[in-house]
């Protein structure tokens, strides 16, 4: 089919009885003609495919967000994780600088009782060893997961609080629950049989949904800030979420496991859909190309 014929396909039909007629307004002249049955069919099919492609493009544009962990590359979570694994971070609420000062002070106290050059050099070298050992014992790298979680939660709380020392406002609660969920999901990934923890994660995710829904009613501005920061979407907060097998399959909690088995019929249907979608997209691309080239020639 030539380019001109293709273009004529998309012209509106005004009158079927008239074989070929032209009429002119003040500036533009239109040309109409009757289409054959086959042409009409082709036209309707192309239109259908175009619509399909448009709908699919819209679906593609929709963001798919994990209702538990939120967006994959959330800068807030990345930063908190980096803070916790920093080199000088100590566990159990100890501060690196304070420990350093204290050990120095201990050495000075010892030297103040007994002072000469030899004692000083021995004592100093001993203190260096003590410091190294103490830091290693207290280091977050040698600490347990609970400690790491507590520190991460403390960081998150500090970022979300409305006033210093705020532990109860809705966004703080949601942030704390998010951090807990991250740690829980790490555990669940490693222990697929720990059903208790899966239940805990479900309850936590649902509780967070409830709190965020309340926050939306209470203070919408803060709500949108909080969900954006936690990497969630409005839909993820308001959807029905059961932490079911379908969810775990879709977001690949255990990538090598098949949790939901689909029937042959379903698989076949999906394949057919995918093929149709591909076709529609290809058609849309071709049509776009033709449209652009036509507009250029005009």
């Amino acid at each position: 089919m030539s380019l001109i014929n293709r273009l004529t396909l998309f012209r509106p039909i005004m009158s079927v009885s008239a074989q070929r007629m032209t009429f002119a307004t003040s500036s533009v002249a239109f040309e109409f003609h009757v289409l054959s049955k086959a042409q009409r069919k082709i036209r309707s099919e192309t239109k259908k495919k175009q619509n399909r492609a448009r709908q699919l493009a819209k679906l593609d544009a929709l963001e798919k967000v994990d209702p538990v962990l939120g967006r994959a590359d959330n800068p807030f979570i990345t930063r908190i994780r980096a803070e916790v694994t920093e080199k000088d971070v100590l566990g159990k609420g100890y501060d690196f600088e304070e420990v350093e000062k204290l050990i120095y002070g201990i050495n000075q106290a010892r030297l103040s009782k007994l002072e000469n050059d030899y004692v000083r050099s021995v004592s100093n070298s001993q203190t260096e060893t003590i410091k190294e050992v103490v830091i290693r014992v207290l280091s977050m790298r040698n600490s347990n997961n609970q400690d790491r979680k507590n520190l991460a939660v403390a960081f998150a709380r500090k970022e979300f609080e409305r006033f210093p020392g705020d532990t109860g406002s809705s966004e703080v609660q949601a942030a704390v629950q998010t951090l807990k969920l991250y740690f829980l999901m790490d555990h669940i990934r490693q222990n697929p049989k720990d059903l208790d923890k899966i239940r805990n994660a479900r309850m936590l995710a649902q509780q967070r949904q409830r709190i965020l829904r309340y926050l939306k009613r209470d203070d919408p501005q803060r709500y949108f800030w909080a969900i954006r920061k936690l990497g969630l979407t409005d839909e993820a907060v308001h959807m029905e979420f059961n932490f079911d097998k379908r969810y775990m399959q879709e977001y690949e909690i255990w990538p090598d496991r098949v949790l939901v088995k689909e029937s042959k019929k379903q698989i076949e249907e999906k394949r057919r859909e995918r093929r149709k979608a591909k076709k529609a997209m290809r058609l849309a691309i071709i049509q776009d190309g033709v449209g652009e080239s036509a507009s250029k020639t005009v």
């Binding site: 800068p75 807030f76 930063r79 501005q221 709500y223 949108f224 800030w225 969900i227 954006r228 920061k229």
Partner: peptide, 13 residues
């Protein structure tokens, strides 16, 4: 609000 939050968080982060 959603639009504002997106910009604000980007800057903040």
């Amino acid at each position: 609000y959603e639009e504002e939050a997106t910009l604000k968080i980007q800057k903040e982060e």
